[in-house]
Simulated scan of single mutants.
Amino acid sequence: MATVGAAPAPKGGWDIETVAAELLRCEDARIERPAFTDEWPELDLDTGYAIQDLNLRHRLERGERLVGVKLGLTSRAKQVRMGVDFPFVAWLTDAMILPVGDPVPQSRLIHPRVEPEIVFVMGKKLEGPGVSCATAMAAVESVWGGAEIIDSRYQNFRFTAGDVAADNASSGAFVTGPIGLPPAQLDLSLEAVLVEVNGVVVDSATGAAVQGHPGEALALAANDLARRGHAVESGWIVLTGGMTDAVFAPPGASIAMHFTHLGSVFLNGGKA
């Protein structure tokens, strides 16, 4: 069971280094806390990204390997639910990969939710600024269906733009499905998914829910990363963002994401 609350702010208030350390502590200990902007309203988007980048360095120093990027809040459904008006870019490491067939890792997550994703594996480096959807898609080697298990270190998933950027866009874990296809074989704006929980279809969407086309999300990632001094590298995995709202993933749940051409992704909620 996750613990509510966390250590009080350091004397003198929060800064980039102390927020970064606190977020990793909350993640490792499965502790949720109020949004930092409750105490530090100056935590804006750029400051949040600085915290995110610092924690990437900490993750790499402790042995994790950078494998790609993820986008968060790319669909209008997710933006409405979370009260945020634009997407975010965050990091993926190998520690976030969930092996196919493994249950939702309840023992290391606070309040997991699952959302369907269209996933790219990059064949070429993609570097902004000025990347278009067409340019982005030309750099993609293969397209996969997937599921992201999002988590948040904030109570009730309540946060501002700066908070969620600092928290690596609510990263948790991810898994990809059984079928990878060249992008030329798919109309990704029409690629559909059905979300099923305990045998009941609870939501559906198409790729158009993700910025109009998942390639637009990839272009957004390349252009945003360029502003931060990075590029989308060849071989990276890119999660383009939840196509639907996320569904809760409690212990014992059975969750499936059925894609039109990209197969199905199955998850079970595991044990508490």
Rank of each mutant, 00 (worst) to 15 (best):
A95Y: 12
A95S: 14
A95G: 13
A95Q: 13
A95R: 13
M96S: 04
I97A: 11
I97V: 15
I97F: 05
I97G: 04
I97Y: 01
I97T: 13
P99N: 03
P99L: 00
V100A: 15
V100K: 13
G101W: 03
G101S: 04
G101N: 06
D102W: 14
P103A: 10
V104Q: 09
P105V: 09
P105H: 00
P105L: 11
P105D: 09
Q106W: 03
Q106Y: 10
Q106P: 11
Q106A: 02
S107C: 02
R108N: 12
R108C: 10
R108Q: 13
R108S: 13
L109E: 01
L109N: 03
L109C: 07
L109R: 02
I110T: 14
P112L: 01
P112I: 08
P112Y: 06
P112M: 07
R113C: 07
R113M: 11
R113T: 09
V114L: 11
V114N: 10
E115I: 08
E115Y: 00
E117T: 00
E117F: 04
E117K: 07
E117N: 05
E117M: 00
I118A: 03
I118Q: 00
I118N: 06
I118T: 03
V119I: 12
V119H: 01
V121A: 13
V121Y: 11
V121P: 12
M122Q: 03
M122R: 05
G123I: 02
G123E: 05
G123F: 04
K124H: 15
K124E: 15
K124A: 13
L126T: 03
L126E: 05
E127V: 12
E127P: 09
E127K: 14
G128P: 09
P129A: 08
P129L: 00
G130H: 10
G130K: 05
V131P: 01
V131M: 02
S132R: 01
S132K: 11
C133Y: 06
A134W: 00
A134G: 11
A134K: 12
T135Q: 15
T135I: 12
T135N: 09
A136N: 02
A136Y: 09
A136D: 12
A136C: 08
A136I: 05
M137K: 02
M137R: 09
A138P: 04
A138D: 15
A139H: 08
A139L: 03
V140F: 07
E141K: 14
E141P: 08
S142L: 14
V143W: 09
V143L: 11
V143R: 04
W144F: 15
W144K: 02
W144H: 15
W144S: 11
W144Q: 07
G145K: 05
G145S: 03
G145N: 06
G146T: 10
A147T: 04
A147C: 14
A147I: 04
I149D: 01
I149F: 04
I149L: 15
I150P: 00
I150L: 13
D151S: 06
S152A: 10
S152E: 07
S152D: 00
R153H: 05
R153S: 13
R153Y: 06
R153P: 02
Y154L: 08
Y154I: 02
Y154H: 13
Q155E: 15
Q155V: 15
Q155D: 13
Q155A: 14
N156C: 05
N156F: 07
N156V: 05
N156L: 12
F157I: 00
F157K: 02
